[in-house]
Design a protein around this nucleic acid. Sequence first.
DNA 1: TATTAGCACTCGATACAAGGGAGTGCTAAC
DNA 2: GTTAGCACTCCCTTGTATCGAGTGCTAATA
Lengths: 341, 341
Amino acid sequence: MELDERKKTILQAVIRNYLETGEPVGSRTISKYTDLNLSSATIRNEMADLEEMGYILQPHTSAGRIPSDKGYRFYVDALMQKERQVSEMQELLVERQEKMETMLKQVAKVLAANTQYATMISAPTVKRNKLKFIQLSRVDANQLLAVIVIEGNIIKNNILPLKEELTDETLLKLNILLNTNLNGLSIDEINLGMIAVMKQQAGVHSDIVGEVIDAVGEAIRADEDLEIYTSGTNNIFRYPELADQQKASELINTFEEKQLLGELLQENQEDEGGTGIQIYIGEEAPVRGMKDCSVVTATYELGGGMKGTIGIVGPKRMDYDKVVDTLRTIQSQLDELYRDE
Amino acid sequence: MELDERKKTILQAVIRNYLETGEPVGSRTISKYTDLNLSSATIRNEMADLEEMGYILQPHTSAGRIPSDKGYRFYVDALMQKERQVSEMQELLVERQEKMETMLKQVAKVLAANTQYATMISAPTVKRNKLKFIQLSRVDANQLLAVIVIEGNIIKNNILPLKEELTDETLLKLNILLNTNLNGLSIDEINLGMIAVMKQQAGVHSDIVGEVIDAVGEAIRADEDLEIYTSGTNNIFRYPELADQQKASELINTFEEKQLLGELLQENQEDEGGTGIQIYIGEEAPVRGMKDCSVVTATYELGGGMKGTIGIVGPKRMDYDKVVDTLRTIQSQLDELYRDE
DNA sequence: TATTAGCACTCGATACAAGGGAGTGCTAAC
DNA sequence: GTTAGCACTCCCTTGTATCGAGTGCTAATA
């Protein structure tokens, strides 16, 4: 059976109503809610069909209907208002901060306050970003400090232990060697072969120096684990369907063990061209413990190819329109904020 | 009225029992639990006294007694086993990590897993630590990178925007100036007067240079906010008295807004000589939203004067013995791990 | 005088029944 | 195809009875 126009209207009405109230919605409500001018009996027949087709379901006999995952999916794909009035694009009060970390935390916080859902944001990955600058300097007799600056002014540093002392001259040479070989390359492109070549070029000192180069190489690629910041975790208590102990505990645990969120946030950074916004309903999200939630993710870009992902987690009956809208706003604000880099 | 020996024994028995079961404990239980060989009627009389004196209370008539805050306080101060067998000092599997952050997170996690309570740990403050090394280097035409290494190999960096270009020579001079003036000083000791002197010494370049020095000064003192890591937040759901929505939400919010924990963790870093372990019961903790909890904090030291604080948050009926014990273990482990620095 | 046995009493927790209400599915009429 | 009507289902609330753990008090006991 196909969904005719009337069924769509009714389905939409059921979902809209449920999103607002969180209560199962009955035929009489729909009969008044829509301008179809149909009696509750007719609506009942249609709703029985919709249930048979899997778009809605009854928590128990003699209760109203609530949307199924399939129903939500259809709503999101086909029924949701795609074009939203841009007028009410309120400012979300994100300021550019000196430290990326501070800014990301702020974004998560602002989004949580704004949407009343739980939020998370992954720091932009730098694998594809280019190295701008490397500098080794001596901290004391047996410790070397390696500072690595990456496009977008991401800075990494590492203390390297030294077995033997390095002369000033060797240090200078090493600096030149590293910079001439590596500058302008993306972290992705730096591989073991290249490090081997550099070791060779180091010539006489290759044993001491090799050690240092290895350590630098290590330092560059070490930061595999992407950083994730979360906020508004306790918003889940606003939604009774998530607030019982079992579920709340599981969700909070997921938010604490941030690596569990990693997969979710990395999944769709690839898609080009689209809006970068993705909606996961219930089991669709690749995270255990979110089966009663919906997740909306958005890719953001800070210029210079630095991409990260924002995620908003709420009950399945979240206000998808508003969330998508808010994410769009944030996307464009971040874009603007960092355009000049 | 004073607490005689028998009352102490009974109070202790009540508390011990309540810590184990979480249920109000009645006179009959005590009558059997202790080796006082008293009937439940006698115990009842004593318990009535204890209640009048404020050490225990009844949730409602015809229920057993539970300890009051005053009761817990007395238990912790006077009744708890002070000397614990050192034999069972199990290893808590904390390894030294390259990055301080990783190590701290691990400590929080291990403690949470071990105690089944919520944990938090503040990164060691560096205000009293000495500057080891400052280096300015040019990233590109109008950006300067300042790297600051502090005792304990804490590294801070900052990108400074430049209005005018600096020559290599000026840069070199600046580096020397900064290092000669600041090395060996603690961050506490660097004040505006000193910065003013340095500006003067900079002589000709004082306008450009002043700017840089200001920025460096800024960078050094910027990191006022102490970093705090938490773990095991969802452990609070293990304890029914904390697990209801209202309280859980408030607690989780407190753990998310980490600055709320700051005061608690900074409070007793000063006391010298003691074990550095402090117990807060209920309202004693200087944090709103922990009035139904107890908090045990411990100061740790990583060598070189770097001190931080660990906190464990659980229900008032937490296993104080075990928690104090575990914190001691961690203290000594951290001490050992970083002794050589 | 301190302890204890005995007893009436309190009060939360649990179980059960009754009634109300929202909503359904079905049938028959329009 | 639509709708009015009706019996039915099932949750939820309310009220009532019961149970049991524990108490406080009194009087008897060592």
